[in-house]
Design a protein around this nucleic acid. Structure first.
Lengths: 329, 329
DNA sequence: CTGAAAGCGCTTACAG
DNA sequence: CTGAAAGCGCTTACAG
């Protein structure tokens, strides 16, 4: 039989209201009654019913969603499809859970103000730095990283299984007879990017091929890199990339260089953003469940807020390959 | 403003009872009223309150907890400390959540009977095979693997981050000047074991040392293997193992061979079971949060049962190294 | 097939 | 400081 506040109340000879007050550490209880109630609780092995608790509470949780300036602008302009979807997932979850949230840039000058009154934080995006994480951890309120993780941290996070997704994608084409696939790797310190590259390398190694990784950063000229790949490795049959936005750019570059996609060179993306479907040719890529990522993170934060459990976990979403037209079959 | 069943009822001009019936697909609603209610719902963007729903439902969920014969016996005899703790965690979570559960062996003859009436399953233990997973997936009810994962499966699972834990442990001693650490690796197809070995190898490679892996299986004679390690590699300063129970055995073997632990050879475990603390010498190991693993898995299954989200995820718990006396500092 | 009403286990003004 | 009572948003016998 489940123990309820009613049972405690009966044993301690008080009302359930008082039990609730003791349970929630209200100051308006005399030390004597508090002890009585505490003893009754001891003797009963009570665990509160979270459903009832949450239903009875009318208060809303105030959540802060922080991201880098880049992501923040991308969300505002509705340009950054990936994180737009993630935010949608967050929104969906919170909308049914008595949570209000505000999105802000962690790079903004008035950070202090954005943090004020918030009871928990979601830090969204691969660009979130150690410094930012340290700062938010120091606040002492629950924090969940979304689409980001940094080695060595014990912190709650929700990421996609980019390693396995990229591995599956590359292996798929290697199994079909491809032998030379290059990889465009964004060197930004982004957990996902690294995982994906690792997956690419594993697939290549397994077949006995040497990975052909071309690193780049935000300052790089994509046209030049594309050209270099073709010059240095004319045998390249396809170029895999760390994300769809890069893949889309590479397709443009290839076209500019007079190459046909996929006939001369194939291109693969990662993320499966909306434009991946409508691009010409439609992009072969890996689907990241962006909304799920958002709602999963929101859920985790909510659980943390409700003290459901304590130890930090890394939650990793499986990914699916989606084969379209940008790589010849 | 949040939409409630009351609002739907008002618009559709029915009672909330009827709304609830439509929402839950009860057959006892005329097609006409159903349509009215459905239209009202459409117009309102309703999302049900899970707290209220769960509170109102008095029904208990019936959960099945399956494990291999080995684990099952180990739990019954209260011998297998690791999974005993995991089960405790499951128990703790379910006890406050209207869930009844039964533990059974997936290798038993009357499997069919154990499955009957269950609404969800937890498959506990590294020994759970592909065949078993396939079978349970085919039932079409929520399944969560606990302390197990098999590559290629898209299935919910909760595991410990053995890779990073073992890496941290080995690195800790390598940083202290250790140069030759051997590794005893159980070849049973166990996700955790493999992850841990990988962590060991990463730490060794990073320092420029060659991993020294000694595989074994249930049929192996541990004394012989221990002897072989010492003969083939007299320079070995410590033996790391894939789990505490093995480490404890190795300590015995070393003693039998006239070696002192940790003075002649150090020994490291993994899991931090209870006897790790009381053994002589107390075991240096990595702590897996066993109860959390159980409660996290139970929670995930519960969420699945409540349709909270759909995509399978891998949940990975961080691990901590615990330095005791079985390795010289 | 449908509605009025009780109940799930908590919290929290309100009154004292 | 404490209790009686209403309410959170659902579900479900029960009666019709």
């Amino acid at each position: 039989m489940k123990v309820r506040t009613k049972d405690i109340a009966r044993i301690a000879n008080v009302s359930t209201a008082t039990v609730s007050r003791v349970l929630n550490g209200s100051p308006n209880v005399s030390e004597k009654t508090r002890q009585k109630v505490l003893m009754a609780i001891e003797s009963l092995d009570y665990t509160p019913d979270l459903f009832a608790k949450n239903l009875a509470k009318k208060r809303y949780w105030e959540i802060g969603i922080g991201c880098t300036d880049e992501v923040f602008r991308g969300i505002e302009s509705r340009d950054y499809q990936f994180y737009l979807k993630v935010i949608e997932g967050i929104q969906k979850y919170f909308s049914r859970k008595k949570c209000n949230f505000t999105i802000f840039s962690v790079d903004s000058k008035n950070l202090e103000e954005n943090i004020k009154g918030k009871q928990g934080f979601l830090l969204v995006g691969g660009g979130v730095t150690k410094k930012t994480i340290d700062f938010f951890q120091s606040i002492g309120k629950p924090v969940v990283l979304v689409d980001q993780y940094i080695y060595g941290y014990e912190i709650d996070c929700v990421v996609s299984n980019g390693f396995y997704g990229e591995y599956k994608l590359i292996k798929y084409f290697l199994d079909k007879g491809y032998r030379s696939i290059a990889y465009l790797f964004d060197t930004a310190t982004h957990f996902s990017y690294e995982q994906r590259r690792l997956g690419y390398e594993k697939a290549m190694y397994e077949k006995g091929y040497t990975p052909l990784v071309y690193p780049f950063n935000e300052k790089s000229n994509m046209l030049e890199i594309t050209k270099r790949i073709l010059e240095e490795h004319p045998e390249v049959e396809a170029i895999a990339t760390c994300e769809d936005r890069v893949a889309l750019k590479v397709i443009e570059c290839l076209k500019a260089l007079g190459k046909r996609v996929p006939d001369d060179v194939g291109v693969m993306g990662f993320d499966d953003i909306e434009s991946a479907e409508t691009s010409d040719p439609a992009l072969t890529t890996v689907n990241v469940f962006k909304e799920e990522m958002g709602s999963l993170a929101a859920k985790r934060l909510f659980d943390l807020l409700n003290n459901e459990d304590i130890r930090p976990t890394q939650i990793s979403l499986f990914t699916n390959i989606v084969i379209r037209d940008s790589v010849k079959l």
